[in-house]
Simulated assay, not measured.
Amino acid sequence: MTIHSDAVTEPTRSFARSKSDSIVGGVCGGIAEYFDWDVNLVRALTVVGAFVSFGTVALVYLAALMLLPQE
């Protein structure tokens, strides 16, 4: 007995740095593409977060820059 599914599957999204929306390394552009957000909003939140968190967000950004693959 075989079961057929008529459900339409969405293409899988990968979490990667963006080539098209890249200023420093494409991390914010990759986050914006993955979550379908405005890239300028992600950049602004990253800068504000870096100041508010006393640099912790900047360290997370650098880790993502080193660990995430390029699109």
Results as ranks from 00 to 15, higher is better:
L65N: 11
F51P: 01
F35R: 09
G25N: 09
A50F: 02
S53V: 02
K19R: 15
D36N: 13
W37M: 09
V39C: 02
L45T: 12
A32L: 00
T9F: 08
T12M: 03
T46N: 12
E33G: 03
T12K: 08
L62V: 13
F51R: 05
Y61M: 12
L45W: 01
T9D: 13
G26L: 01
Y34T: 03
E33I: 00
P11T: 08
I3C: 05
L62N: 11
A58T: 10
S53N: 02
A32Y: 00
G29A: 06
V42A: 07
G29V: 04
A7N: 10
T56C: 12
S5G: 08
R17Y: 06
S53C: 02
C28L: 08
V8C: 07
P69V: 06
E10M: 04
L41Y: 09
G26D: 03
S14R: 14
I31G: 02
S53H: 03
V27Q: 02
P69S: 09
R17P: 11
A16M: 04
G26I: 04
V8I: 14
K19L: 14
C28I: 14
H4T: 13
S14C: 06
R13P: 04
A64H: 06
S20P: 08
A58L: 05
A44I: 03
S53Y: 01
V52R: 10
T56R: 14
F51C: 07
G55T: 13
S22D: 07
D36S: 12
A58V: 04
T9I: 12
F54S: 14
V60M: 05
A63G: 13
I23N: 12
L41T: 15
V57S: 08
W37N: 07
V48H: 02
K19N: 15
R13M: 04
L68S: 11
A7V: 10
A44R: 01
A32I: 01
V52I: 12
I3N: 14
S22R: 13
A32E: 03
G25A: 09
E10W: 01
I3D: 13
I3E: 14
V47R: 07
I3K: 13
S53P: 04
F54A: 15
I23M: 07
E33W: 00
A32S: 07
D38V: 00
L65S: 12
F54I: 13
T46S: 09
A44Y: 00
I3S: 10
L65I: 03
C28S: 15
N40M: 00
P69H: 08
R17D: 11
D36C: 07
P11V: 05
